[in-house]
Design a protein around this nucleic acid. Structure first.
Lengths: 341, 341
DNA sequence: CAGTTTTTGAGGTACGTAAATCAGAAAATT
DNA sequence: AATTTTCTGATTTACGTACCTCAAAAACTG
């Protein structure tokens, strides 16, 4: 039978109240007594029944998620996952609200964070945009004792507790590895399309991609990166133009959003001369394109995992617990048309 | 505030006991009253507090995991994950024991299942071996009212409730897709190494692999499958021999275990003429080989996911709940050297 | 209508922990 | 030695649900 606090009290020869004081770090226990209780805890192998503890505590965690209000499929997916978490909030003793901010707007983000701080939630998760204002706002949140996690895009060097997202450098390397191998031994050009070089995750992906291309695939020449602000129609134009200009493009890496436009542009090309395409995020568009053969591989970060990880970490931080890094690592999933979920 | 049973009782104008009867499907409630209560439940949006319910029930689920007692890394991984689940058993109200059986031995497996049935656990998970005895034993388990799940290797056509494992057909297709693309436009032979064609998962992987090779890569000719009984030293010999015999082998698909032997054999080949290698299961061996460049891609099924899924399903089945298919689908992970976890 | 059966109410105990109060014991201080 | 301070014990209530008993009311039966 699983030991309970009563068993510990009996085994340590103390009262329930003292065990409680030790377990919950309350004052008023002599050092020797505390040790005796801890000894009993470890020798009996006691583990707190979290369900019962939560029930008794009746504690609820209040969190805020700050998300950019633009509508690419991936962000919609993130929002859906946060909504799903909200709908589970009863069972998980959380109270989560979503705050929308304009995308790529550091002052607006910093503003939102400051307004949230006034409400004194237990934790905040946000999609980072780089900017000194944001760093400062994060600092203020932390000073107020609020747990802070970045989501999808990180803000290194700030006081944030955790980043719930993928290693974008590794993602870029993976993309290069895949694309380089897929083109076989052929020579040719590789085009790269990003959303914006002002966003950290896109920059890091590009770095990783360029590094592996240089190391492992010297026969492929990577064209200067094009930016399409994650806009499908702009992306379509840009891709069409570059494919026309350089007929020897044999590979395309789309490291941002706006894949609908890319698929559209690629479909226009005759199948024999179509470039190989590696893109990010498994959405309805990329999924269909994989099946149709217009995209060859998709790298994905699981929005559900990211959101749940962020919540877990914020909860833990609110209780002063450390992050279990291995558990919170978000994987870079590779999907081909045959292993789609 | 989240509504409780008390709120429902008040809102429906009935007593707590009646609400309890409705909630837990106990008899002794008039149809009209039951409807009134259900109406209150849905209008208040009541959801049962699972933690409190479990606490009150004090129910524990007893499960048995039947695993083959041979020591390839993947099976060790599965066993570790079951051990991990055992160590969590306090918090998860489960009581799990592991039963070891000789591998590839249908009568022994059937025997073990029958012995387990005598103990009347709530559920059984096992790595299937094909055989009429096993089908029959599963039938007996189900008749006794025990939930049954297959793990890693399935037993279609039996009465099992669930299969916790990957779609091996899709895994084979994915492997072919990767390998076919990696070799570029070159012609050549592809060698395939399996553990045993008597095991269902290996057979299915081969089918999927051969199908895609035929459809999409007609310039590659797939050699007859070799069997090495998941034995590293045997695998090393077999691979060395076939590579010697057919110098134009440009790709190798290892769809079983024993990768240590394959890595060993491939290391002997001069780097310029090494075949591309796709293998299964991310282990210490395959991980190191990926880094070293001896293996080019690894397909993986996450042992932790599989074990946890099996437990979730067995719990649900023990309570008569349906399986949420989307939640229990085990993904086929692809790892290159750059996206390893 | 009385008698029987079914339905309902009221109340309690239990699960394992948290958190509080209050009294008493032990230790430290004066 | 007296006083204050610091510990500790004993006990109680609460969290939300499950499950039990017993009595009372309501609904049927003939």
């Amino acid at each position: 039978m699983k030991p309970t606090v009563h068993d510990i009290a009996r085994s340590a020869g103390v009262s329930l109240a003292t065990v409680d004081r030790v377990l919950n770090g309350r004052p008023g226990v002599r050092h020797v007594t505390r040790e005796r209780v801890e000894q009993a805890i470890s020798s009996l192998g006691y583990v707190r029944d979290v369900a019962a503890a939560n029930l008794a505590k009746g504690r609820t965690y209040s969190f805020a998620f700050v998300l950019p209000n633009y509508d690419n499929s991936f962000m919609i997916g993130i929002r859906d996952e946060v909504d799903a978490a909200i709908s589970r909030s009863g069972a998980e003793r959380t109270q989560i609200r979503i705050i929308e901010v304009p995308p790529f707007d550091a002052p607006a983000l910093a503003d939102a964070l400051d307004r949230i701080a006034a409400d004194m939630p237990d934790g905040v998760a946000f999609v980072a945009v780089e900017g000194d204002e944001v760093h400062a706002a994060v600092g203020r949140l932390k000073e107020t004792g609020i747990a802070v996690a970045t989501l999808v895009s990180d803000l290194p060097g700030s006081d944030r507790d955790h980043f719930a997202g993928i290693d974008n450098h590794a993602a870029g390397r993976t993309a290069a590895n895949l694309l380089g191998r897929f083109v076989g031994g052929r020579d040719g050009r590789i085009a790269v399309l990003a959303g914006s070089m002002l966003v950290r995750d896109h920059r890091e992906r590009l770095e990783g991609f360029a590094a592996v291309m240089g190391e492992s695939f010297p026969r492929l020449s990577v064209l200067p990166v094009m930016e399409a602000r994650d806009d499908p129609s702009l992306a379509a134009d840009v891709v069409s133009a570059v494919l026309q200009r350089y007929p020897d493009i044999i590979g395309l890496y789309s490291l941002g959003a706006g894949n609908r436009g890319i698929v559209h542009a690629v479909r226009e090309i005759a199948p024999e001369v179509r470039p190989l395409v590696v893109a990010h995020e498994l959405t309805r568009t990329t999924r269909a394109a994989l099946v149709e053969g217009l995209i060859d591989a998709v790298l994905n970060q699981d929005a559900g995992h990211e959101v749940r990880s962020a919540i877990r970490v914020l909860k833990g931080k609110a209780d002063g617990l450390p992050v279990i890094a291995a558990q919170e690592r978000i994987r870079i999933d590779i999907f081909l048309k045959d292993n789609m979920p």
